[in-house]
Nucleic acid binder design. Sequence first.
DNA 1: TACTGATAGTCAGCATACTGATCAATATCC
DNA 2: GGATATTGATCAGTATGCTGACTATCAGTA
Lengths: 154, 154
Amino acid sequence: MKDNNDMPGHLARRFQQIAVAVFLAEVEDAGFDLTPVQYAALATIKANPGLDQVTLAGLIAYDRTTITGVIDRLVQKGLAERRASSRDRRARELEVTDEGRRTLRKITPAVESAQRIMLRGLSAKEGEELMRLLRKAIAAGNDLSRAPLRDAPV
Amino acid sequence: MKDNNDMPGHLARRFQQIAVAVFLAEVEDAGFDLTPVQYAALATIKANPGLDQVTLAGLIAYDRTTITGVIDRLVQKGLAERRASSRDRRARELEVTDEGRRTLRKITPAVESAQRIMLRGLSAKEGEELMRLLRKAIAAGNDLSRAPLRDAPV
DNA sequence: TACTGATAGTCAGCATACTGATCAATATCC
DNA sequence: GGATATTGATCAGTATGCTGACTATCAGTA
């Protein structure tokens, strides 16, 4: 029988497990307390000021129920703000605070370092190839999870 | 600035997210209720009858605190048994029940189908290459997470 | 305008995963 | 042999992620 440890699903979990551990270690070494999800959300809010939570979720492929808690914690840390939208009273408009902007700026080297470390076993060429194959596999499976990547609405 | 969605860490999370969704869907279609973690644990117990929880955790690279809960649920579903060890009274010896054995046998096609689906965007050759690169990256990063893969003790 | 359906956000509940602590039992070392 | 260190398992606490349900609101239409 095929070794369980050699299945694609298992390898996916292991790589993700290492990626998260490396991210948290690098960020903590740099003196910050931010998870991968929180970083992705914060960076995406900064790039799209005033966007609502559902759009944010789509842009980074998270479930909207997860985003609620992530934003809670970003707000609680003083890095983001959640305001009622004037156009649609159901929606919340998200903004990065000055403190959030400062954090994003200072944390970038740690984030980039983490990306290098998680690929440290591969040559530059192999790293590129791994990313290409992951992108291709993900594109084909995008609609298979509850939280597919979506473009921002017009 | 580099697009956040194009970082290795993000791709890792997305691929893992899709892999889990596909696994759960295929297994549910086959009439079973088992998570990827539960499946991996059950299959590994079957292949190593009587092993303790720490060894199990090392064999599939899970944190031992996570394993406690996973075994709780396997026991509660009647698929595994947890007995006090006679050699070491701190340890628990794990066994698969007849029901667990039956489940493993019947669930295999769904698990294999899930592995194919999560790679459906890639050619056979590309799928092999993706797995090779993941294995290589994982091997280099094995010690970077709290739950590295470990061989069984002698 | 009243009805219907869709959408934004939240919540309860469950299952990973992690950190750090604790307890009981075993190993090791002097 | 007895102090010390280590180890197996669990627990409390926190943060993803998911399903399914619910409320409030919006949009389209008869």
